[in-house]
Design a protein around this nucleic acid. Structure first.
Lengths: 109, 109
DNA sequence: CATATCATCCACATTGTTGAACATATATAC
DNA sequence: GTATATATGTTCAACAATGTGGATGATATG
């Protein structure tokens, strides 16, 4: 059986959970870059979102044109219940593995 | 650039951090199974440890025969500084992504 | 030599990553 | 108005790295 969620998939779903209705390519990317300090390609975000949708963990809809400036229409993403469930499993696993090690982990250089 | 650490790699390194000198195939496996509640193949553990060693994040040494019962000698694994460093980065990333969402994550069904 | 423990191999599935191309909205010039 | 420039966003395709599991091999003691 494949992993419930890969490492990057987890980050993407966490971004969706936090962003809610504001989720689309650019915001998801920014969220991850800001919070992890690591630079990611925008196409990596789309690829992952696409796969998550195929697995039924996420749903997407194309939005209306915005009045800000030009550009293609956004594709918004929403975390579905199965996605939330998978995220919880991953979160609990990580939490279980790190329980009691928080101090040591933070102290690492 | 590849991910610093994959999902399973993180679990394995966390197991090493906790187990210390008691780390070898079976204990690492048990640690992960117990704390995540998910069943894993022993070969998955070895494959991952092998790759982590190639990356210089871990070191291994074969131990002496134990007096318990028969069996091949154990191969013990040790977390090296670069491994601890990588683990910290992964931990901080995850922590950053989940910061403030703990309540919601725990509440998920 | 029988059996219990452990480790290794190998082949394949799933995820991760990137560069380049494609699409579509508004702005601006004529 | 119509053409073209430009800003935003998304899609594609190819390849690299990780994740998995079944079968096989190695080595200790009873």
């Amino acid at each position: 059986m494949p992993p419930l969620l890969g490492e990057f998939e987890q980050l993407v779903l966490l971004a969706l959970l936090r962003l809610g209705p504001d989720s689309y390519g650019a915001t998801v990317r920014r969220e991850i870059e800001t919070r992890t300090g690591r630079e990611i390609a925008i196409s990596a975000v789309y690829t992952t979102l696409e796969r998550l949708e195929q697995k039924g963990l996420v749903r997407s809809r194309v939005g209306e044109p915005t009045a800000e400036r030009g550009g293609r229409r956004r594709r918004h993403f929403e975390l579905l219940p199965p996605g939330a469930q998978a995220l919880k499993v991953a979160y609990d696993s990580f939490t279980g593995m790190t329980a009691g090690l928080e101090r040591r982990l933070k102290a690492l250089r």
